[in-house]
Structure formats: C-alpha cells, structure tokens
Amino acid sequence: MPDVPAPRVSLPAADLARTVVFAAFIAVLGIFPGIYLGGSGVPIVIQNAGPLLAGAILGARRGTASVVLLLALVAIGLPLLSGGRGGLAPFVGPSGGFLFGWIASALVTGLIVQRAERPGLPVLLMATTAGLAVDYAIGIPFLGAYTGDLGAAAVQSLVFLPGDAGKVVAAAVIAAVVHRALPGTLARPAVHGE
C-alpha cells in the first residue's frame, strides 16, 4: 500500500483466515480433477504449483504458514494431497523430500516477491523459479539418500523438469494477474483493530 496513514495492525483473525484458506486452496488444487494445461488433452496435477502461488501471493510468512498447515494436516491422516493421498507415507516415500521442499519453496518465493515494491512478471518469474529450485535442492538429495546415488536421483528428477518449468511460468503469470486484480494483497491488512 502506498501511503498507509495510521499504524494499522492486522488482526490475527485475518492472518489466520488467509493461512487456512490458502492451505485449503493447495489441497483443492490436488483434489480437483481435470485441470488442463495448455493444449494437451491430459489433465495434469498442478498441486506442486500451490506452494509457489502461496509464496507469490501471500508473501513469505503467511505463504509458508499455509504450506506447513497443509502438510501437518496431511501428516495426521487427511487425504489432501493429489490423488487423495494422505498420512505419513508420502513423507517417508522417495519423493518425500519434494514435499518438505514445499515449505522452503513458499518461503523463498515469498521472500523474493516481498522485496519488490510492485511485484511484476520478471520478479515473480525469478521468485517462482527460485522456489522450484529449492524444492529440487531438498527433494533430490532426499531421493538420493533413498537410492544411494545422488547422480541417478538427479537424472530421474529431470523427467519432471519440463512440466515443472511450465508450472513455474504459469504460477508467475497467474500471480502477476492476481496482484493486478487485487493490489495490496501482499501487505493489505484485511481487517483493522486493536
């Protein structure tokens, strides 16, 4: 916000609502079937774009909180990951590192976006790219620990790179439009008081 006059403290309730609703948003990205990307006829899972969007739209603090909340609910057994997966298994499976990486993803994306006065497409692209990179940086070694071979893990992960690159671009474009549609979303205290 350009010139916020009096010191306004946003109520905890507004923060809480954003965090909760965005955790639900990421869950719905996974639950909701048949989102078609580009011209392909195959519905693809776009849930892993959720943490990037969380950071890019809500900023580091609330974005990260919403990802942590979502993963906590998954861990206690709610089937909120794509394909109705839930419980502890996804975390200990070979791609568990990519899940933990979501937290860092939202954090890094949010931190970069927050630095910009008015987040435009270039900054958002940089932020979501960095967000995906840290996800890989955590996910690949985890996979490597599983297979005992980091190099092979990296090679295997390359399969997902084209799709994920598409999601990085899509998340940045979408976040740019949302920021124009709702200016001040990163900082706006939705509710005033105290």
Binding site: P12, A13, A17, V21, I174, V177, V178, A181
Partner: peptide
C-alpha cells in the same frame, strides 16, 4: 489456465478476507 486460476484465486482471497472478518467478529484471534 488463467481463465480458471485467476478467478479461482480472486474468489479464494475474497473468501479469506470475509472469513477473517467473520472470525474477528466472533472473537477469534
């Protein structure tokens, strides 16, 4: 993608704001 994701996100954020107000009005936080 944008025809789906943008309105979905905008309505999601609006829902979050309304929920925040409703929670505040009910003393949460």
């Amino acid at each position: 993608v944008t025809a789906f994701a943008v309105p979905f996100l905008v309505r999601t954020l609006r829902h979050a704001d309304e929920l925040g107000e409703a929670l505040a009005a009910r003393g949460a936080g």
